[in-house]
Amino acid sequence: MKKLLALLIFVLMLTFLAACGSEDTSSNDGNTNDEDTKENSGEDNGEWTPSESIEIVAPAGAGGGWDTTARMSAQVLTEESMIDQDMGVVNKEGAGGAIGWAYMAEQEGSNHNLFVSSSPILLVPLNGQSEYGHEDFTPIANVIADYGAFAVAKDAKWDNLNELFEDMKEDPQSVTIVGTSAPGSMDHIQFVRFAKAAGVDITKIKYVSAPDAGGVTQVLNGSADVFSTGVAEVAEQVRADKLKVLAVTSEERLDGEVLSTFPTAKEQGIDETFVNWRGFFGPKDMDPAAVKYYENKYKELSDSEAFADVRSNYGWNEMYMGSEEYKQFLDEEKENLQSILEELGLLK
């Protein structure tokens, strides 16, 4: 009997609390609306400023590229007093970003929720693994660019991209490409783009996905032939004379003692580039004044010396795009990727 009593009280208290809870949230909503109207009236003066702490979602686990970008930029923005409100990073990990994007889709209309993303926000929806793509959010600003690299073992028979592609044109099955992520994602697609530009039959490319740094291991021990990855991942291996880079995916040669020795694909006559951009987004229907505010702040961040240090430590490149330009860039990029995935039979 007593036990039943314990159960009963538990349930009763919860229903009570839940009722309070829903009231509370609704009154909260009221508050936010009030603030919004205030903000709107402020907007007449042309200014919008955040009225509460800002949440930045990294749609991945702690420690990855998105997480680092979110944390380091929040750190610089608050430390250099560019933004006075607190900026908290929240990890919404899972499904290659889709969990985080679904969460952001629920924040529609909020002016205090941002998130960081890169190419997967185009690729994952195309692979049929996310309901939401960049169209469902408000692009605010791009801040960073990474470039891809194609590396082979030091003693590999190819010395440039054309030699590799010549062999692949003859027999695509004779070469194994290794990358960290699954087919249809970045490592795979960046290689396919260049192979396609060179005239290789891209449907026959042999691609192996190897997580946990398996890619560099497999190229070093000869299991796989070409490592398709980011420039930063291979620079040290090249410096130590273990790998050589056949090409980087940037338009022009990169800066840096080692990096500047890597030839671009363009200078080898293959007219193709690939940039792994990374930037910030807001939820759908974000107040245009707020977008303007964040756009300016990220511009400030991008131009700051403190962030330049961060960039150079991580080997990131500067690539600022404002909201409008960013959106247009994303639309074009998505179309491009769509046609490649279609050809590969990976489009869902």
Partner: peptide, 23 residues
């Protein structure tokens, strides 16, 4: 070469601190 999730995060830490982990 980071062989696990934890060492991958440590590799990130090297970079923040201005070091290049590698051979």
């Amino acid at each position: 070469i980071p062989g696990s999730g934890t060492t991958a995060v440590m590799l990130g830490a090297f970079l923040v601190l201005g070091l290049q982990p590698g051979p």
